[in-house]
Write a protein that binds this DNA or RNA. Structure first.
Length: 296
DNA sequence: CTCAGATCTGCACTCCGTTT
DNA sequence: AAACGGAGTGCAGATCTGAG
């Protein structure tokens, strides 16, 4: 897990930008298609970790302390007492996906940023759900103060899986917000503007990208903690054209119209759904909601 | 304690009955 | 016949467990 990200020749590689991440995804995925190991590479999560890494890098660039991202349980133990003396924090990125309890179930979060000044307070859950009696090692106060960003992708069979994946996306935010309504949730969803066809050759099919934009706008921008619980505080629909030598990331609907992926006059908007402003936007929402929490 | 085998989890993708 | 929808599949990695 520490660094399982490889380039297409099998050499360890750490993408620092979202463009480097999608470039590497294209190269690794396409070589896997050609040598018949496409399913293996997808299920190994080797591709999606490229996006994880670029998002983590962008979080650090907004001044988040690396040790507060996906910290180990050992590191978290220092928060068990609010009067703990200052801890000598190494500038190392954690890689532990935190298992967070929601109203219906637990779920490990892809990227968790923990505040440095909120104590952990284990509690036994007392709720009218299957989680009744579950011992949550973090407690509600700490859980709701975690900034959580999940990352998904779908490179082929896009329409076939739309329903299942959209339901999952919708359910994950609801599960957490039903228990901890203040929690700030982000989602980065990589979607190709043309899906890869199946088989052992490189090829692309058109998809209806407008449908994705509309559906993700419908669960986006939960600015007020009283807003609908199935929404995310900030979603990113990372729309990428892989059918060119260097993949192109789309940040605006106008670019999609210009390249023929949305009809002229389309009402679709990528405002608040783009990657370019994603990290800044979600940090803004977090710091407004939890002005006293320390992430640096 | 170690560590190998068992079990659990996450997730892209397939399959097949239903609808149009 | 074609498209749809959603239950089912199976791989890979993570985590657990118990024998020694």
């Amino acid at each position: 897990m520490a660094n399982k990200i490889l380039n297409h020749t099998g050499i360890p590689f750490t993408p620092k930008t979202i463009q480097a991440a999608v470039n590497n995804i294209k190269q690794v995925y396409e070589s896997a298609i050609l040598n018949g190991t496409r399913r293996n590479i997808i299920r190994s999560s080797a591709l999606i970790k490229n996006i994880h890494n670029a998002v983590k890098t962008d979080l650090i660039d907004t001044n988040i302390h690396p040790s507060l991202i996906n910290p180990s349980p050992d590191y978290l133990q220092r928060l068990i007492s609010p009067n703990q003396p200052a801890y000598n924090r190494a500038r190392v990125l954690g890689d532990k996906e935190l298992k967070i309890a929601g109203f219906l179930k637990t779920k490990t979060q892809d990227i968790s940023v923990i505040p440095d000044n909120i104590p952990i307070s284990p509690t036994t859950m007392n709720v009218n759900s299957g989680m009744n009696g579950y011992i949550d090692i973090y407690g509600e106060t700490f859980t709701e103060s975690i900034l959580s960003i999940n990352v998904r992708s779908q490179l082929s069979s896009v329409n076939k899986n739309f329903d299942t994946l959209y339901e999952r996306t919708f359910a994950e935010s609801l599960n957490l917000h039903l228990r901890v309504p203040n929690m700030v949730l982000g989602e980065v969803y990589l979607i190709p503007v043309k899906e890869y066809i199946d088989g052992n050759v490189i090829g692309f099919n058109a998809i209806d990208i407008g449908k994705y934009i509309e559906n993700f706008q419908a669960i986006n921008m939960r600015i007020n903690k009283n807003d609908e619980k199935f929404k995310y505080e900030r979603c990113c629909l990372l729309i990428v054209d892989f059918d060119r030598p260097v993949p192109k990331i789309y940040n605006t609907a106008n670019e999609l119209i210009q390249d023929g992926f949305l009809p002229v006059g389309s009402a679709c908007s990528m405002t608040n759904l783009d990657y370019a402003n994603f990290v800044n936007d979600i940090m803004q929402i977090y710091s407004t909601r939890f002005p006293a929490n320390i992430l640096t």
